[in-house]
Design a binder for these strands. Sequence first.
RNA 1: GCCGGAGUGGCGGAAUGGUAGACGCGCAGGUCUUAGGAACCUGUGUUCUUGCGAGCGUGUGGGUUCGAGUCCCACCUCCGGCACCA
Length: 873
Amino acid sequence: MIRRAQRRKMATYPFKAIESKWQTYWESHKTFHIPVEVDTSNPKFYVLDMFPYPSGSGLHVGHPEGYTASDIVARYKRMRGFNVLHPIGWDAFGLPAEQYALRTGTHPRITTEKNISRFRAQLKSLGFSYDWDREVDTTDPDYFRWTQWIFLRLFERGLAYEAEVPVWWCDALGTTLANEEVIDGKSDIGGHPCERRKLRQWVLRITSYAERLLQGLEETDWPASTKEMQRNWIGRSEGAEIDFPIQDHADQAIRVYTTRPDTIFGATYMVLAPEHSLVGVITTPEALDGVTAYQSQAARKSDLERSELQNEKTGVFTGAYAQNPATGSLIPIWVADYVLATYGTGAIMAVPGQDERDWEFAEQFGLPIRRTVQPPEDFTGNAFTGDGPAINSEFLNGFHVAEAKSCIIDWLESEGKGTRKINYKLRDWLFSRQRYWGEPIPIVFEDGGAHALPDDALPITLPELEEFRPSGSPEGPLALATDWLHTINPATGRPARRETNTMPQWAGSCWYFLRYIDPHNTDVLVDPGLEKYWMPVDLYIGGAEHAVLHLLYARFWHMVLYDAGIVSTSEPFAKLVHQGMILGELEYTAWRNVNTGAWVCASKVMDGRERDSGDEVESVRIVEEVAEKVSDHFVLKEAPDIRLDVRAFKMSKSRGNVVNPDEIIEQYGADAFRLYELFMGPLEQVKPWSTRGVQGTFRFLRRVWMLLTERKIDDTSPSVEQLRVLHKTIARVSEDIESLRMNTAIAALMEFVNAAYKWSSVPRAIAKPFVLLLAPFAPHISEELWEQLGHSQSLAYVPWPESQAQYLVDEFVKVPVQVNGKVRATIQVAPDADKNQVLELAKSNKNVQRFLNNKPPRREIYVPGRIVNLVAA
RNA sequence: GCCGGAGUGGCGGAAUGGUAGACGCGCAGGUCUUAGGAACCUGUGUUCUUGCGAGCGUGUGGGUUCGAGUCCCACCUCCGGCACCA
């Protein structure tokens, strides 16, 4: 059955033959290759996709959404005369290939190559106009040579250092993981349990770029939400560091960081993080047992476990006291894990009156509370964190928060008790991984010291291994490659031991966009002249899941390269757009009581149970036809009091709602698929997939095909009306592509075809520009039609049609006539008609007169060509 | 809790403060056909009306305006991110 339908599709619109023909043509003619030595007097456009990790499961329909959008822009800009750089490559290091190697003994390189071939074939089957001669692969030694080279630049600038860092260690994976790779105490990949261990690690000093990473956002055209996420991640705050002298320890003070120095008169106790170095110094003998027990208990908890139990704050008194530098009074020093060792100084002055966490702690342990900001009269809460006049604060009394802050900081500074201080939440970047399938870090150890290898020793390639099992020690699998491990330090000529850590997957993606510019250069990372021409990336399209990490790390490396004089811009990505996630098809779900078999209203289902009876319920996927909408929700037609859940879910293997692009292309062709991916809705929006929707764009292409092949193309000169339709379409499509509104651009193309179907024939002078407009969206069918219209060359570089203003205005327009804001008639006038004539015509309409009660209106409004509004007397 | 974004037909969505629902899916009727799950044409927010036309309608309640999906205020719901960062 399906085959018969397919044959019919093929017969009327032979997309398979067309698509393979043109893919072959582009490949053999290198249509989209742009030479390294390019004519730099032309304007350039660099349109970049976030390169994929070539996973074993191939592309899903979410990938091609962003890729299609960028491809449309690339093809459009080429036709606009730009030199277009539109490359692709592979972010191919990573854990899955290594884990596969563990299970099967297959070398990660084999797996990676296989996956890349699959991805490459899939991307080619979609007809993307990448310059395949610029493909990069992060696992290629010719590529990671330069990743290592950048690491050496970081090292020599003091931005890469070793530290003993408490890190997440995952026994199952045999490696450490970054904070962001551990979710709820389990590894992001695989879901294995993880624990904290202190290990020697390479760390990148991203924090010294915190301020610039923050400031640089101002000059980028990025989604506001992404900038905001980066700002929050960097987490700049302004405040003060203040020293609190410790009783009986005259030589020691507790330094705290606070953003509210104005509340210091309300600091009634202090808290040290359990890991704080002074805990052991100040704790009194009587308190020692309790404090030690508390410390070891806290060490076993993860950050999450600490914060999960927010409501039950824990802590223990050290027996020691500090002196409040403002009031001079003695206040107790506690240890509590609600204070983080890793932020600020690891110690706080606790001001329960103005801080909810401190209030909670103070209440729990009976510590004094002293308000220093007057809350408003109607304030009913506990701690008051808003603005108000200072109270109980001696010389600060009466000042509002901002004033009080600067006043107290001036005082602290003049007394030598504190200083103004800016703090960031951003931490340095843990850069070590105890894995095999990553870039080796180009460092050797001799006499316990780390030494950079010289540039000419690069690339440091991975040794061949038979075993990929983690060594079980924090050293990782490379420690097992003894021949590789023991080497000579070229600087001294003496035996040395290689670094066995490798780089995290983020490393290769921090700079790949630079290598595309000059991919085969063996002398430098990128030729400076070419870099200056092509950078920055004009349009970067990729998922919002990279809003913080990849985009922050890449910006950091780029700023370092900028400081080192290697690149010419400090920000790499001028404009950034995130494609929205594509969900599975809309699902209609009914709920049924497992025990009784009766339907259960969705509003009564709680956590898999019926709310009233507590019985277990099961979900039943039902077809759309048996559902019905009643006011704002869906119910079963046969039982209107049974509400349904209707929504689309994220595609996942376990849910079984994954759509495979290969199957869609097989059935409808790449052009129809590309068109549907963007016709669904705005690029940046989350939207559900609908295979039936693909039929719509397929039908459209078939109509195009029949319009321009079966119907007669003739050489008559086009009518003014036909020219109007064409030029309006040109204007709409051009504007929509410029602003990435691909869905409405496609709608405009559809409207053109609908209009053209009403014509008896299509003049060649109309057909040609239309095919060019269609080309960025549906390149295969467009090339074929272009050839049939009598051209022997690809249309890829044919100039984009220009819209002519004279055809953008109609001779007559229909203008609605409102009375009191409601449409009562429509009149037909010339767009530039005289205002009074239009108003007279409007008022002469019978229906209008009826609603004006046959009296002259009190007010008359005419927006030329748009609307008449008459206000009745 | 905090910070973003979004709520429009049966569904995806469109709309410089100016006729709400373009375009597509679905549905209904028709044409052609041995056939239709193909193609083409017509219709399709909802209620009343034979028709002309009229009432209602963009999450809820207010407001600004000749005119509000669009601007302002308050609230509700959903999605995404962050979450003891002092």
